[in-house]
């Protein structure tokens, strides 16, 4: 199970990375939107976690692009933006889950488990 994380703060990125690695996931880290887009195409992760405010491409753009794929990859958006309008915008673009910062790692892993298990069924 490969998970791609795009987050521009190295410490937060690392914290999430370590937590998820401990749970047995393979992690791909990116610090900006451009790198994320390239790695999504080349490495084909099974799930994507993106921050909204990223250099080059915003997280929302990544959501939009990913959801246009033939086999859309599930995406979790993590952002400091908590207001309803942004959540709705992300959901409208096709985000599978929206987590606002500050967040609980346990909640994140729960969402990951839910999304990856339901993804497996229709295939």
């Amino acid at each position: 199970m490969k998970i791609l994380i795009a987050e521009d703060d190295s410490l937060i990125l690392k914290t999430i990375e370590l937590c998820l690695k401990r749970d047995g996931f393979e992690i791909i880290c990116c610090m900006d939107g451009l790198d994320a887009m390239e790695k999504i195409e080349s490495l084909q992760p099974d799930l994507i976690i993106v921050d909204i405010m990223l250099p080059y491409f915003s997280g929302l753009e990544i959501v939009g692009k990913v959801k246009q794929f033939k086999n859309p990859i599930p995406v979790i958006v993590i952002s400091a933006m908590g207001q309803q309008s942004v959540v709705e915008e992300a959901m409208k673009l096709g985000a599978d889950e929206y987590i606002s910062k500050p967040f609980n790692i346990a909640a994140l892993t729960a969402h990951i488990k839910r999304l990856t298990s339901t993804e497996a069924i229709p295939a």
């Binding site: 703060d9 410490l11 937060i12 914290t15 937590c19 400091a80 910062k101 500050p102 967040f103 609980n104 790692i105 346990a106 909640a107």
Partner: peptide, 15 residues
């Protein structure tokens, strides 16, 4: 600085 920065992003056990 690192702790302060990280603190504001997390809840729960990490925090």
């Amino acid at each position: 600085d690192e702790l302060v920065r990280n603190k504001s992003s997390f809840l729960g056990i990490v925090s």
